Computed example of a mutant assay.
Amino acid sequence: MGKTKKLIELDDEAIKILETQAKLQKRSLKNYIEFMLEDRALHFAEPSEEYKTMMDDMLQRQKDGTLETIPYSEIRKKYGF
């Protein structure tokens, strides 16, 4: 995947907030902004074909009554929550 440079303008207060968050994550401001934008962009991306196939299979098993699930209460007991 290639990379493209873009010039962005943010108000001073936004920069201060982002600088604080970057320091908390031990990142440079530039790296933090790039990370946040790329992470957010992935939320808009189309799911992979593998994921779609897996979900279609799970939905079909649920429809057929063959999907096995574990109640949340049992998971809590098992892991001590």
Rank of each mutant, 00 (worst) to 15 (best):
M1S: 00
M1G: 01
G2F: 09
T4I: 14
T4P: 00
K6P: 01
L7N: 03
L10R: 10
D11G: 12
E13S: 13
K16V: 12
L18A: 10
L18D: 01
L18H: 08
E19N: 15
T20C: 09
T20E: 11
Q21G: 06
A22P: 04
K23S: 11
K23N: 08
Q25P: 03
S28F: 05
L29H: 07
K30A: 13
K30T: 12
Y32R: 02
I33R: 06
F35G: 01
E38I: 13
R40F: 14
R40D: 11
A41V: 08
L42G: 02
L42W: 03
F44L: 14
A45I: 05
E46L: 01
P47S: 03
S48M: 02
E50N: 10
E50L: 12
Y51E: 15
Y51A: 12
K52M: 04
K52E: 05
K52N: 04
T53H: 15
M54G: 05
M54S: 09
M55S: 02
M55F: 02
D56R: 13
L59I: 12
L59G: 04
Q60M: 14
Q62D: 07
K63C: 05
K63F: 10
G65W: 05
G65C: 10
L67V: 00
L67F: 00
T69H: 02
P71D: 08
Y72T: 11
E74V: 13
E74C: 06
E74N: 06
E74Q: 10
I75L: 05
R76C: 13
K77D: 00
Y79M: 11
